[in-house]
Simulated assay, not measured.
Amino acid sequence: MKNSTLHTFALCALLATGPLAIAGEGHGDHDHATSTIGIAGDAAKATRTVNIDMNDTMRFTPANVQASQGETIRFVVKNSGKVKHELVLGTKAALKEHYEMMMKFPEMEHASPNMITLAPGQSGEVVWQFTRSGQVDFACLQPGHYDAGMKGAVKVMVKKMPVHESKKMDEATHH
Rank of each mutant, 00 (worst) to 15 (best):
K2M: 03
K2R: 15
L6H: 11
F9A: 13
L11R: 13
C12S: 14
A13C: 08
A13T: 03
A16R: 02
P19I: 07
P19L: 06
P19R: 08
A21C: 07
G24R: 05
D31P: 10
A33G: 05
T34Q: 03
S35T: 09
S35L: 04
S35W: 06
G38F: 07
G38V: 15
A40P: 03
A43Y: 06
A44N: 14
K45L: 12
A46P: 03
R48Y: 04
T49P: 02
N55H: 12
N55F: 04
M58S: 15
R59T: 15
F60Q: 02
T61V: 09
A63H: 06
A63R: 09
N64C: 12
T72M: 06
I73S: 04
V76A: 03
N79K: 06
S80T: 14
S80M: 05
K82F: 05
K82T: 14
V83A: 08
L87A: 01
V88Q: 00
L89G: 08
L89K: 05
G90M: 02
G90Y: 01
G90V: 09
K92W: 05
A93Y: 00
Y99G: 00
Y99L: 01
E100P: 02
M101R: 05
K104Q: 09
K104I: 12
E109S: 15
A111M: 11
M115S: 00
M115A: 05
I116V: 15
P120E: 09
G121D: 01
E125H: 04
V126K: 03
V127S: 00
W128I: 12
W128R: 04
T131L: 09
S133T: 13
Q135E: 06
D137Q: 12
L141G: 07
Q142T: 10
P143E: 06
D147Q: 07
G149T: 13
K151G: 09
K151F: 07
K151D: 04
V156M: 05
V156C: 03
K159T: 15
K160S: 11
K160C: 02
M161H: 11
V163T: 14
S166K: 12
S166H: 15
K168P: 07
M169R: 08
E171H: 14
T173Q: 13
H175W: 02
